[in-house]
Simulated assay, not measured.
Amino acid sequence: MEYFENRERAESFGEVAADYDAYRPKYPAALISTVMQAAEAGAGSGSGSGAPRILDVGSGTGLLASQLKDAGAEVLAVEPDSEMAAIARAKDLKVEVSVFEDWDPQGRIFDLVCFGQSFHWVDPIIALPKIRSVLKAGGSLALAWNDIEPRGELKTRLDAITARFHAEGSAASLGTAGAEDNFAHVEHPALTQLRGAGFTPDEATFTEDLRFSRHDWLSMVFTYSAQLTMDPVKRAVMREEMSKVIPNNGLKARNEALLVLAHA
């Protein structure tokens, strides 16, 4: 089953909207800068105010959208979950509540369309032609994912716990065989989809070292759909087992954020 077909997982985030916003990390500054450069190139010199127009699809609580807005973009967010959208609106973001496949662009055109941790939740057969239709000539598509893993021996212990509770392999978040916090370094399946739709994609990775308290790490891990759709008792046991192996002073982690930047 493709991710976008699993509606239980796709629609599971609203129940933890506040935790999602509080504990999901921001995107690396260098990634934001690269996206803004592409958006500004798409806007060109005749864009009026000069602010590039960005459509952020599957915006969630506006984590990516707010970073792009702070960087100077004019952002419209599209988000299917009303509880997630409410948090994004509280950040003074413009949000329209809809699944992207059903969303009406009303003739609006954008310099860049972006997906932050969300492209795997849309049907590419429907979404990619729609993206092309709302992109200005010379515009870009940006797909971003944070990929955060603990460092050192602790990673092995936490991965073993995850594997026991997700033996069916349902913990992936990027459309790969890896666990949600363990991206497998193979070609991302989105690249094939993009090429098939007439886009020319390029990949870039942005690495940053992070530190988490035990509480913050666990709170982040349990905002992912694989955990949200678990049996509540199993989920509580998994969280307790993870808590026991994380030191009192927290853990070090590395984010190898992936950006796929594509041009039609």
Rank of each mutant, 00 (worst) to 15 (best):
A65P: 14
D81I: 01
E74M: 11
T61I: 02
F100E: 03
S82R: 01
G44K: 12
M84L: 15
L93Y: 01
E96W: 15
A86N: 10
A65W: 02
A71V: 05
P28Y: 11
S45I: 10
L63Y: 00
R89S: 07
L64P: 04
Q106N: 13
Q37L: 10
A65L: 06
D102Q: 09
S66A: 11
D21G: 08
A29L: 09
A71I: 10
S47R: 14
A29S: 11
G46S: 08
Y23D: 05
R108G: 06
A73L: 06
Q106W: 09
D70E: 15
G58Y: 00
E74A: 13
T34P: 02
E79V: 04
E74C: 12
D70Q: 13
V35H: 09
Y23A: 09
T61K: 00
K91W: 09
P52V: 13
L31T: 11
K26H: 12
P28L: 06
S47Y: 12
I87N: 09
E83H: 10
E40S: 14
D56W: 02
D102A: 11
G60C: 05
L93A: 02
I54Q: 06
A38S: 15
G58C: 05
D56R: 01
G62M: 02
D92N: 10
E101W: 07
M84Y: 07
G60Y: 00
A30F: 02
G72D: 07
G42Y: 02
E79F: 08
S66P: 05
A22V: 08
V75I: 06
A38V: 08
V97E: 01
L31S: 05
I87D: 08
P25D: 06
A86Q: 10
P52S: 06
L63K: 05
I109N: 06
L63A: 03
P52L: 15
A51R: 13
D92A: 12
V97D: 01
S45A: 13
Q67I: 11
I32Y: 07
A77K: 07
A41N: 12
Q67W: 11
V75N: 03
S33I: 06
A86Y: 05
D102P: 06
P52A: 08
A51M: 12
S66C: 11
S98D: 03
D56I: 01
E74P: 06
M36L: 14
K69C: 07
